[in-house]
Write a protein that binds this DNA or RNA. Structure first.
Lengths: 148, 148
DNA sequence: GACATATTCGTAACCAGTTACGTAATGATA
DNA sequence: TATCATTACGTAACTGGTTACGAATATGTC
């Protein structure tokens, strides 16, 4: 079950990757979530981004390094809190953001299209997440075990 | 989107893992798919298993090594085809299979329970897989791009 | 029987996430 | 002000999958 979801996610990621390749754009799919947070000029710290995306700060940290290496993002130390490192798009990043705008929009539409085809699978996944929040798989299994 | 699914799958895997730990059973979640194929005494080759599970033979190969190291599975070279390596449960594997039977059944029920709570999320995921089969995300996005 | 092609499987390298743990900066409290 | 807890972030190791590639065996054709 878990593995199945993983494979599905891998598939989607690979598919998205192939789009950038086909279009000859130098953009890596794994950059997207962080990059997207910074689009529009907002400057955010690592933790702020990880909170927004619901992933670990480590994951953001790694993506950030890659984005900095690509010259799309810069970081500056927060003056009022030396622990925080604040990220923002470079001008090159902004330019790319503009260029990629239509593609991102198309991907959005494609996702919506897919979701419609699949009978609101995304909503179902959200429900799955919520159902797990209220009662974990292990709790559920524990109950069934005691019964037998 | 892809990442989100991945995290969900990780969560389920970790949850399943915690069950084995709680019950004090020495069984790793990643063993399950291959182990389950071999339950009931059937002997299968690496490729047969990977086909059944819809995963790469490499993944099966790695799991196999781990299962052999744990003494739960043995492999013998096929006499009529020297390339094939045929896997089967050892007697220890069979014993464990019996012991774990109720737990596996409980997990099955738990998954069904979860699915019901989530309004047939699993069916939705299946639909998502099918929808991707008929038209990939990149194809869909390509269409929307041309329109604009 | 020899050679080209296909199949089975394994090793190595990679991927995007994670946890575990350490460090530096901040904040709170005595 | 000294110390202790908390917070922000980074590095390292691991996870469960993948692709790329190579070796051994089998198969088909001349």
């Amino acid at each position: 079950m878990g593995g199945r979801l993983r494979r599905l996610s891998d598939r989607i990621d690979r598919d998205a990757k192939s789009i950038y390749e086909k279009m000859g754009v130098e953009f890596e799919q794994r950059w997207f979530p962080v990059f997207n947070c910074l689009r529009g000029g907002e400057a955010l710290s690592v933790t702020e981004i990880s909170d927004r995306l619901g992933i670990s700060h480590v994951s953001v940290s790694v993506t950030r390094k890659s984005l900095e290496a690509a010259g799309l993002v810069t970081s500056t130390q927060d003056k009022s809190d030396g622990r925080r490192s604040v990220l923002a798009l470079t001008s090159r990043g902004e330019t790319l953001s503009m260029e990629l705008g239509p593609l991102f929009a198309a991907l959005d539409l494609a996702a919506a299209d897919l979701n419609a085809d699949a009978g609101n699978a995304i909503t179902a996944i959200e429900r799955l997440e919520k159902a797990l929040d209220t009662k974990s798989l292990s709790e559920r299994a524990g109950l069934f075990l005691k019964e037998s």
